[in-house]
Structure formats: C-alpha cells, structure tokens
Design a protein around this nucleic acid. Sequence first.
DNA 1: CGGACCAAAATTGCATTCAAAATTTAGGAA
DNA 2: TTCCTAAATTTTGAATGCAATTTTGGTCCG
Lengths: 258, 258
Amino acid sequence: MANSVPRPSAEDAATVPPPDTKRATSGAAAASLHGEVLARLRDYIVEGNLADGARIPERRLCEMFGISRTPLREALKVLASEGLVDLLPNRGARVRTLSPQDIRELFDLMGGLEALAGRLACESISDDEIAEIERLHHQMYAFYLRRDLHEYFQSNQMIHRKIVEAARNQALSLAYASCAGRVRRVRYAANLARKRDRWGEAMREHEAILDALRRRAGSELSDIMFLHLRNKQAAAAEHLSADPAPAPQQFTGVLHSK
Amino acid sequence: MANSVPRPSAEDAATVPPPDTKRATSGAAAASLHGEVLARLRDYIVEGNLADGARIPERRLCEMFGISRTPLREALKVLASEGLVDLLPNRGARVRTLSPQDIRELFDLMGGLEALAGRLACESISDDEIAEIERLHHQMYAFYLRRDLHEYFQSNQMIHRKIVEAARNQALSLAYASCAGRVRRVRYAANLARKRDRWGEAMREHEAILDALRRRAGSELSDIMFLHLRNKQAAAAEHLSADPAPAPQQFTGVLHSK
DNA sequence: CGGACCAAAATTGCATTCAAAATTTAGGAA
DNA sequence: TTCCTAAATTTTGAATGCAATTTTGGTCCG
C-alpha cells in the first residue's frame, strides 16, 4: 500500500505531494490537477529529463504525480498537440524525437518569431527597456570573457526573452515559448560548437541587434534577428553532427515534489 | 428520429454516427474517438457555429458526438491550449471571445508568420509554383472585377496558403494554420470593409508580393507580407468597429454526421 | 418590487472500471 | 539453439461512478 494511488475515501492523505507543489511549476499553474500535472510534466520533458523516444507508460507517470490516469491523459494530449510528445494509437506516449529536419524547421520558425518580435519591439520599446537589454548584453559579455557557458547561455536567453516581451504581444510570447521549449535541448548545443568563436560571433550579432533597436529600425532588425537564428542553427547543427547523441537519463524514479 | 439528440444510455447502438464520419473532418482524422472529436469540434468552432462566449455544456457536446465525457474533455483541453476555447475551473468551457487587443495580436502574429513564409519561400520556390500563384492571382482578379466576395476570399486564402506551403516548413504550416483558425471569422470581415477599395489595395499588394517572389527577394518580401497583414488588420478593424456584432447561431441541435 | 438566503438540480473534476488492443512470456517444432 | 505460435499479462482507450462545486429555483424578508 506504500505508494498506491490516493484513495479519497481513506484518511491516507500522505500520498499526495505537499499542496504548495503547484507553485513550483513554471508560469501560472492551474488550480486543477490537470493543469498542475500539465505544467510539471511539460517542464520535466523540456528540461530533458526523459530520453528521446523513450516510452512513457501512463502508469508510471501516474505514480510519479500521485494522480489517476484521467487528468494525466488529458495532459498528454495537450503535450502532444504542443509537439513535445508523440502519441501512437494504442501504443502510448513517447518523448518526441526531433529529426534534423524538425530542428531546422523549428529554428527557422523561432527565427521568424524573433524577427517579428524585433519588428514589433521597435514600435513601442522604451529607452529604459533598451538600457536593460544593454545591461544584459554587457553581463553576457562578462560571461563570454570568463568562458562561463552556463551563465552566458542564461544571459543570452534572457536578452531574447526581453526582446519578445518588448513586442507586447501575448500571442507571440506564447508561440515563442512553445517553440523555444521544443528546441531547448538542442539550442544549448549551439554554444558548444567546436570553433568556439561562435560566442564572439553571437556577441557581434547582439551588438547589431542593439544598434537596430536603438534606431528603432524594425525592418532591419527583423532581418538581423532571422539571420542571427540562422547562424545559431548552423552552430547547433555543426555541434550535433559531431556529437549526435545527447542520451539523457533513462526514465525512472519519482518526481521530487519540490 | 429526424434530428433528436442520440441517447447513449439505452441499448440503442445506432446512436453513433456512421463510421465514415471520420473522413468528414478537415485534415487527417485520427482513428481514436478523441482525435475525431477534436478535429470535428475544432472545425465546428472555427467555422463559427457557436456564439462567442457561449457556454458549452459537456453533456450537450457528448450527445452531439455520441461519445462519453472522457474523450470529449480531452479534446476540450487541447482546444483550450490552442486558444479556441476558454476553460474556467469548475465552470465549463466557453468559446473564446477575442478582444480587439487579441485580434490585433493575432493579426500581427499571422503577419510575422507570413513574413517568414515569404522569406523562406524565396529560398526554394520553383518557377512552377510561382506560376500557380500567378494563376490564382489572376483568378482572384476576375472575382474582384465581378465583386464576388466569397470566391475572392477563397482565392485570397489560397494564395496565402500556397506561399506558406512554398516555405516547406511543417512547423510553420502548423503554427500558421492554428493562428489562421483563430482569426478566421474576423478575417472575413477585412473584405467587407466599407470603402471597398480595400479590395483594389489588396490586389496591388499581391502584385508586389508576386514581384518580390519572382526576384526571390526574401527580405523585401518579408516586409511586404507583414505590411500586407497590417493593412488587412486595419480593414478588418474598420469594419468591425462599425458592425461589432457577428452574432452567430445559438448553440442547439445535433452536428450533422456527414 | 427587489434582494438575500437556502435547498434542489445540474455540471464539473477526478477516480475507477471495463473492453480492446499490444506486449510479454511460455511452449514446442525444426 | 532458434524461430514460430499462443496464452497470459500489461497497457491503452473509453465509459461509468462519485464527491465537490456551481447554477437554478424558490421562499422569505425588507
């Protein structure tokens, strides 16, 4: 009876994770089990905790989250529609494996979305917001000099996120987040590229971005953003072709509730 | 037996629509109940058969499709994640009402996606594909002269779809289809604009699009596409502000199985 | 007449159950 | 042993059941 599914009838309330769990997920977690599981499972997958193509038995996930199959399956359908998992009829869910073609397409889509973000940002961004992006840019430069990949990566992402935010378009932000989530694992690879001068290249591109932003040159910035993503894509492809197997941990264990 | 709702309770097995129903949906219909209901319900909503903001009792939908609540609820969650319906906790699903802000955002997003499509299309479109788009353009011109709004609208959409297809990017196509579905109702309004010279304006813009396509001027086409959508948005806004109430039919009755 | 309050009915969220696949396992022949 | 077949087990897809919340309808009071 240790980790059996919670029975609403019995007084056994200890199987469910602490109630504050709902806060631990990214974004706004819904009050419903479905919403919470959706957010948590999405994070879990996006963060690369499940091997590509690994089968995900519903039973296991249910135990992991301490819920029944109904809300879990609802979450899986949504994740499938987001492109994070594949749902094979009668054969369960698998973490979606991205083919090189998929990756190219998603990078281009991201490029298009960022191009749009840049264009829109130029219409309404404030000087303060630009200053904030400049600050991040300098911060990133520091990490670049220090060769601190992780922090560099974080700053980089933050800059892109700020530009998307500056577009003041919720629909765009959502589409961008979804796209970014799908390529997250791969994206990291762009910075691991052999000829590590990709870093310096990216720095120069960011400077061009800032320059266009300051001038509110939307159309121009749009081009720069797209090409920036194309270059990032090339770097990622270069790295991935050299070292194609990410091989994350196998599925096992229980999701920590905190 | 004319069009009364099917009752699943009795031994009456004939409640389910004929099996070939699954083919009646747009795109590829899944073999599962969930997949079929998802596609059918999405079409039903996109085509504007439900009033904006109308509450959609699960029970009613279940009877409409002749299924139980489980697959229906899965479909609703997916539609909610696509932005077609709102899911209020404990208070059911409603057709999502688009605020003017939402509409602006979605049009801009569409503009960004089409801008991307144009840019990518220039990289790989064939002369034959361009010829096909030219053909559609002339066809549209004929409908323009004839003032045939419906056919004009169809040709117009087809041209845009062809450009998106020419981009050869599945991820983009999906994102575009989702976005287009959400604004479909409103989009039609753009062509109803009072000063009907919006039509002529659109014709000229399409000529510019074709010109850029022929020259494979990706960056330029990208700008044109975005602005084209901005103009379409302005026309739609103009029409909607004058006649804000679309007021589609109330929810009732059974979905025809064919 | 209008608004607050409360019981009845309907609706939602989730767990459980059941049938139809798929997967695994056991057994036997070449 | 290896390959093939078939029963047993697991897993999925969908229906049903049940507690909790919301909505509805009605009554009483101001």
